[in-house]
């Protein structure tokens, strides 16, 4: 697959080297005091910055809030928002909530899986796209719904879904 055309909101920064991660972590941590209650907000910042939780970052955070690394890993695996492996520049999320399910979400998911050649939860080998399904975006009245990076698209059809990820229709 060729590098896709830029879609609005694609993540530009890549995590880069260990050193780059370290210096970005320094920056993120300056906004926090080091209290246990900040653990999840810190992880959210890291997730947003890198698209996943690098192991090295999690160790840093453990030291920072004075808990064993296992606690940080435990939280990283518990919440669906956190990913432990790198994700693509473009995050494609499809709703699998009830409102969307009865209005044809499975067809949208199948179409995207076919278009991208990956399954729900995976990332394309070129790191361009990650495909996720999400429990509900709260726009159920416009079902089926998908979100490309941060833009919400309603009343999807397989054809519109294809366009939304920047693929031309035949």
């Amino acid at each position: 697959m060729k590098v896709a055309p830029a879609i609005e909101g694609a993540r530009t920064a890549t995590p880069g080297t260990d050193k780059a991660i370290d210096s970005q972590m320094n920056e993120i941590l300056t906004h926090f005091k080091g209290e246990k209650g900040e653990l999840i907000p810190i992880l959210q910042q890291v997730q947003q910055r890198f698209g996943y939780l690098p192991e090295q970052a999690m160790k840093r955070i453990a030291e920072f809030v004075h808990v064993p690394p296992s606690t940080v890993f435990g939280i990283g695996t518990f919440y669906a928002q956190f990913k432990l492996v790198p994700t693509g520049r473009n995050i494609i999320k499809v709703c699998r909530g009830t409102g969307c399910y009865v209005r044809g979400a499975p067809k949208i998911i199948t179409e995207l899986e076919n278009q991208l050649g990956i399954k729900d939860g995976d990332t394309t080998p070129d790191m361009e796209y990650s495909l996720e399904t999400v429990a509900c975006f709260g726009s159920c009245a416009l079902a089926p719904v998908m979100v490309v990076n941060d833009k919400v698209h309603g009343r999807m059809t397989p054809e519109k879904a294809k366009k939304a990820i920047g693929k031309k229709s035949e």
């Binding site: 246990k36 999840i40 429990a135």
Partner: peptide, 25 residues
Amino acid sequence: IKEGAGAFVCGEETALMASIEGNRG
């Protein structure tokens, strides 16, 4: 304001409080 992190069970009140405290919900 505390942002959730994508776990349905965190809507349950005791899990929600655990999550605010920075634990698994």
